[in-house]
Design a protein around this nucleic acid. Structure first.
Lengths: 193, 193
DNA sequence: TTAACTATACAGACTAGTCTATATAGTTAA
DNA sequence: TTAACTATATAGACTAGTCTGTATAGTTAA
């Protein structure tokens, strides 16, 4: 009948509950109830709630990587692929909007964790990866190297726009803020060429 | 001896614990212990933990308004006062850095709350107020009105930089990211004149 | 005296995680 | 075909502690 593993059911349920209500506010009982799974199935697949959280964080990042791959696959140059980074986030936002868009799940997860936690470090690594993607795409472009106009600085500028717009879009329930940030990034790249 | 009211002790303790460990993860017992106050003093001053959270959110915002007022008081024009918005956040970041900087306390608080909560709405109002401050300062400047170069669009761009840089600064433990965002905003304004 | 405070105890629901025992489906081998 | 074995799932009771909020009685200071 149901050939979906308990592990996948748990990750799906945790993904929904953690994103909608926050991680700390979501108990393991709520997760197993939503997953329709026995409690021991949680603890057979994950050593602890912390490990489930870590898997959730990785899954959210992978989810975004997949959305980005789909958006950037058939694009011909770095400029367009940088803009596809925004498109991938917008896809994600519009998907979550039905249940209540609350911004980036990774930043939200980090916001609940102590400063030196492994979870915050994992989110940091994922965000660095996004920045590296932006930087790699920009490096393909013939940027005019004015003072302080390096690809690295431009990549950071674009990432600030990205994360800022997602947070404020989630707060003000205005998903379109992400596409306005995309237009800002577009103009920045145009000026840097 | 101690002429500090129980209410103020509670707000101070809650401010530290909520910021460092998150709101949901902080129990009222931890707050009263840190405040050195009886539990009934909490419930005499606040109807519930929710009301303490609301007071915490307002206090964080007021704290930033005070930092901004101190930074912008003796400045002569809107350009400088927009940059003072970044300075005020940097002051806040450097203050928190001793205990572990975790980005903006208001965005972190919002990240723990459900999509339609009063707390998220309060944080949204505060962020709108920051944007209005930026917009008001920009409105004093003689901006050249190119296509899509309105004061409103520039204000939004600067706010994206602001929030994005604070979040990423908190994640990567690189407070200097805020001053790099300040430099980006500076150049944007220069170009818009 | 009045108001704000303290200390302690309590109710009742919830927390993460463990335990035993059982069911079921797929694989392997005689 | 039948039997043994393995992996994964289940139910549900249980521990030991935490959570918010309340109740009660005593204390301190203006």
């Amino acid at each position: 009948m149901s050939r979906v593993s308990a592990r996948d059911k748990l990750l799906k349920a945790a993904g929904e509950l953690f994103y909608d209500h926050g991680i700390t506010a979501t108990g393991v009982d709520a997760v197993i109830t939503r997953a329709g799974v026995a409690k021991m199935s949680l603890y057979n697949n994950f050593k602890s709630k912390s490990e489930l959280i870590a898997a959730y964080i990785d899954a959210r990042h992978q989810e975004w990587l997949d959305l980005f791959a789909r958006r950037s696959d058939n694009l011909s140059n770095g400029w367009e692929r940088v803009l596809a980074v925004f498109d991938a986030y917008q896809d994600h936002a519009e998907f979550d909007y039905q249940n209540g868009f609350r911004g980036c799940g990774l930043l939200n997860a980090a916001a609940e964790m102590p400063a030196d936690s492994a979870e915050r470090e994992a989110v940091n690594r994922h965000k660095q990866e996004v920045r590296d993607i932006v930087l790699n795409q920009l490096s393909e472009l013939p940027l005019t190297e004015e003072s302080g106009n390096s690809a690295a600085a431009l990549a950071e500028h674009i990432c600030f726009l990205l994360e800022g717009s997602i947070s404020l879009a989630g707060l003000s329930r205005d998903v379109d803020a992400i596409s306005r940030a995309r237009a800002m990034a577009d103009k920045l790249i145009e000026r840097a060429l």
